[in-house]
């Protein structure tokens, strides 16, 4: 009985090896281009030892078999073919993170009136995405000394985290970090008041 089993396994193994030998153990890579979420089209270049091909039209695909192979001429494939191979992967592909910029009053951790309302959008987005990962990054303009501005940017980030927590976001889902005056949105010389640089960036993932 055991011998038969062993023999069967052996036959199976030889059979599989033969299949690989006949097919040249060929792996192949297929690449398909899709429109971006905003409808734009980019480009993917597929390069093997046998050549290089760019795909740049919607639903265009190319296949290359082995490193020595040449990528096939791009060909439009059907939506059904895409569904067949990629339905699973596409279903779980996360939406890209959403970025918000909240502006502050001069030399203060108080939001501007417009940005106070914008917080509601942050909360709505976090809820919709079921986000457990919100990044809060504090910034200042270059007016004042860098040490003071680092503290100010920390206070701004903390103020936003506090508001989010008060609206029901769990504190452990928020990561805060602060860049002081080192990462301006609008690059300026030192000691320049720039409202667009007095900000906190919130990334909802």
């Amino acid at each position: 009985m055991i011998v038969t089993q062993w023999f069967n396994q052996r036959i199976f193994f030889i059979f599989i090896t033969l299949i690989f030998a006949i097919s040249g153990c060929a792996k192949q890579t297929t690449v398909v281009l899709l429109p971006d979420p905003d409808g734009k089209l980019g480009e993917v270049t597929v390069t093997s030892d046998g050549g290089s091909i760019a795909i740049c039209h919607a639903l265009e695909a190319t296949t290359v078999k082995g490193r020595q192979g040449t990528p096939t001429t791009p060909k439009i494939i059907s939506a059904a073919a895409i569904q067949k191979d990629f339905a699973e992967a596409l279903a779980i592909l996360p939406e890209q993170p959403v970025h918000f910029i909240l502006y502050f009053q001069r030399d203060s951790n108080k939001l501007t009136p417009a940005s106070k309302t914008r917080i509601l959008d942050v909360l709505a987005t976090a809820e919709k995405r079921n986000s457990k990962d919100i990044i809060v990054i504090g910034h200042t303009d270059t007016a004042g000394n860098p040490r003071y501005n680092l503290r100010l940017s920390q206070n701004r980030a903390k103020a936003i985290a506090k508001i989010l927590v008060s609206k029901g976001v769990e504190r452990q889902h928020i990561q805060t970090t602060s860049h002081g005056e080192m990462n301006p949105l609008i690059p300026t010389k030192d000691n320049v008041h720039e409202p667009k640089n007095r900000r906190v960036e919130v990334v909802v993932r």
């Binding site: 297929t30 899709l34 980019g42 082995g66």
Partner: peptide, 19 residues
């Protein structure tokens, strides 16, 4: 890198199958 090719990407959405 895939077993067969190297992909270069310019701002886009795309799919890859290796079989």
């Amino acid at each position: 890198e895939t077993p067969d090719a190297t992909l270069g990407v310019r701002g886009t959405k795309f799919l890859v199958k290796i079989d």
